[in-house]
């Protein structure tokens, strides 16, 4: 008769070695990379016109607006690396290729050490980001090994993960959840929707971004972002990301 223990032992360790080792190919899907031009210079006009959300400008691609639909890849753009998983300032999302993320501000939660409690707020998402956020708890990422735990109340939370494009109905619940959190606290915007409205940008009754609602410490671009990007952002706000020093 099979048993849980026997089966698990037979399979071996599934868990990612990130952040002790760089993220593997399987952990960083192609959609985690923003499209960009292969060489410096103005971006091809065909790519600009084909973008359904107006993310491609003459000089640079707005990673925060890009919904990773891959249409521009047929018109001269390609997924660029190295993967800049998350950024601290919204301006960095529109940086031209080759520019570095500006020097990171002090991590807001460095004083909390190795115990970070996380609360998820959906202000109008399609459910994919929600599931990617829950995904960091599965054994392949195992956020608990890094001291990251989900909590059921904003009063116990250090980090607010916001997914979705803010609807008028969720503005007040979001504000209340943020105010209920004890200091120090941090907010991470997950996916194109809270950063720029994503695919829903311009629909009536929606806010274009989290601007003016809650202060955001970290932006995680993507539609939806991969769990490894979300882990990266959580480690960064708690001052434990090697890449950030």
């Amino acid at each position: 008769m099979p048993s849980w223990i026997g089966q698990a032992a037979h399979r071996g360790i599934l868990t990612s070695r990130y952040p002790r080792a760089p993220a593997t190919e399987a952990e960083v899907p192609m959609t985690a990379r923003a499209p960009g031009p292969p060489a410096a210079g103005p971006l091809p006009a065909a790519a600009i016109s084909v973008c359904p959300v107006g993310a491609i400008g003459e000089r640079a691609v707005d990673q925060g607006r890009c919904i990773r639909c891959a249409r521009c890849l047929a018109h001269g753009l390609q997924p660029v690396g190295p993967v800049e998983l998350t950024v601290a300032r919204a301006e960095a999302l529109v940086a031209p290729p080759g520019a570095r993320d500006p020097p990171a501000p002090a991590p807001p939660l460095a004083s909390l050490g190795r115990s970070i409690h996380v609360f998820l707020v959906d202000v109008g998402s399609c459910n994919a980001c929600n599931l990617e956020v829950l995904g960091i708890a599965n054994p392949l990422y195992d956020a608990a090994r890094l001291g990251i735990f989900f909590t059921n109340s904003p009063r116990h939370a250090d980090v607010l993960l916001v997914v979705g494009v803010p609807t008028e109905e969720m503005v007040e619940p979001l504000r209340r959840a943020y105010e209920a959190m004890p200091a120090p606290k941090s907010v991470i915007a997950i996916g194109a929707c809270p950063i720029s409205g994503g695919a829903f940008r311009g629909n009536p009754g929606l806010r274009p971004s989290l601007d003016g609602l809650v202060p955001v410490d970290r932006f995680v671009p993507g539609c939806p972002p991969a769990p490894i990007q979300i882990l990266d952002a959580l480690l960064t706000v708690s001052g434990r990301n090697r890449r950030e020093g």
Binding site: W4, Q7, A8, L14, A26, P29, M30, T31, R68, C69, A70, A128, E132, G135, A137, N138, P139, L140, Y141, C223, P224, A226, P227
Partner: peptide
């Protein structure tokens, strides 16, 4: 845990064969 691991493997498989973990596009 085992079940969620299996679900994640399916997502990765979708990402690998279709280029997007949630089959967008």
């Amino acid at each position: 845990a085992e079940t969620h691991a299996l679900a994640e493997q399916i997502l990765r498989l979708q990402g690998h064969v279709f280029g997007h973990r949630w089959l967008f596009g």
